Simulated scan of single mutants.
Amino acid sequence: MAIIQNWLPPSRENWELIFTVWQLFPVVTVVQWVTTFYPMGKTSIESRFNIPGKWAWVTMEAPGFLTLLYCMYSLPKQLGVESLPWANWTMAGMFTIHYLYRAILSPLVLNPSMSPIHPLVWALAISFQLLNALSLGGWLAGYGPTTINDWSGRLYTIEAGIVIWGWGLLANMYHDDDLREIRRAAQRRAEKKAKEEGKPVENVEKVYMLPKNGLFYYVLYPHYLCEWIEWCGFWIVGGWACAPARTFVVNEIATMLPRALSGWDWYVEKFGREKVGKRKAIIPGLL
């Protein structure tokens, strides 16, 4: 049963329209090259409209994997496809695993605190998730390969893509946790100080330091780079013909690259050029 007739899941015509719009998403990200206004995370602002960080993150990230899974379960019935190949479900599983970590586990369990997020960023993030999920979900659930023969001769490529995706995800998680440890350490210090002085615990929401472990020694945003690698592995699994996966990679880079470059400027302004040293923003020795 469709939640929204011809849109969720999408009809073939509407899916093609959604995918066309999704390919134009980098046009939206051009704004980030001309302004430093990005009201979330370290550049969040005080606003009465702000949404608490953890719940904003959950509600703007979770719709992606939920929409993709809904398409996987509902669209084949609508199209008369009896069962989808294991490779389709493998890609759906890879996508879901990433976002279970990113949308649920990270904000609700692992992150000690998160800065508030402005509704503008929240709305754009939901748009990103829904366009991506519908594009990928439509391709995986019936508008792309629908039989195991469609994947014939690609076993080794699929295996290589899964390995790259897996290492990218693990590296992403490792560097995310290095950032979390800054807050956790600050929280421990604040709790110890509050206990000794008999005062309330100070807010550590805006505590920032220069991390140094792993690829942080070379760049300031290795978690971004690792996520790009992760989704390149995902694209390799789908193959060149998986245009939605390719577009996902392009749109991730278009969205995150200007954020990383402006973040490099933020670190230099906050800590000084000398402390930032030879670190690049996102690609070691290059950018």
Rank of each mutant, 00 (worst) to 15 (best):
G142Y: 00
V163Y: 00
G285E: 01
K278D: 04
M94W: 02
W122E: 07
I282T: 06
P222Q: 04
F37V: 14
E202K: 11
M209S: 15
I51K: 06
Y217N: 15
L215C: 13
P39A: 11
V31N: 12
L136C: 12
V237W: 07
E274P: 01
W231R: 02
E181A: 11
W167C: 14
W55F: 14
G137P: 08
A254D: 05
S83I: 05
G53C: 11
Y221D: 07
P119S: 07
R188S: 12
Q23A: 10
S44G: 11
W55R: 04
L169V: 03
K192E: 15
G166A: 13
L136G: 01
V109F: 01
I282W: 01
R180V: 03
G138A: 01
D265E: 13
I45H: 08
M40E: 09
Y156N: 14
L257M: 13
F25D: 01
D177I: 10
I253P: 10
K280G: 00
G285P: 02
R48P: 12
T90K: 07
A87Q: 15
P107D: 00
W7C: 13
T29H: 09
I3C: 12
N50Y: 05
T67G: 07
E46R: 14
V21N: 05
G238K: 03
W89H: 08
F49A: 15
I3W: 14
W122L: 08
G138R: 02
L179Y: 00
P9L: 11
V163R: 02
V81Q: 09
I283L: 07
E230S: 03
G272I: 01
T247F: 09
G168A: 09
W22V: 13
N14Q: 12
E205D: 10
A243V: 14
W33F: 15
A260T: 04
R259H: 07
S115T: 09
Y156W: 13
H98F: 02
R189Q: 14
I18D: 07
W22P: 03
T59N: 06
M60V: 05
R273V: 06
H175P: 08
A87E: 15
W7E: 10
E13H: 13
Y267L: 07
P85L: 05
L210N: 12
N14V: 06
W151Q: 02
E13L: 10
D177K: 09
F128H: 08
W151E: 04
P284E: 00
A2D: 15
A171R: 10
G239H: 03
M72W: 04
A186Q: 09
L24W: 10
Q187T: 15
V250Y: 05
L66F: 10
E16V: 12
W165Y: 15
L120M: 13
S83G: 03
L215V: 05
I45V: 15
A245F: 03
M209C: 14
E61C: 05
A254E: 11
Q23T: 11
P112V: 08
H98A: 00
A245D: 07
G233Y: 00
V30W: 09
W7Q: 12
S83C: 00
L79I: 11
T147S: 15
P116H: 14
P85Y: 02
E274K: 12
D176P: 00
S44F: 02
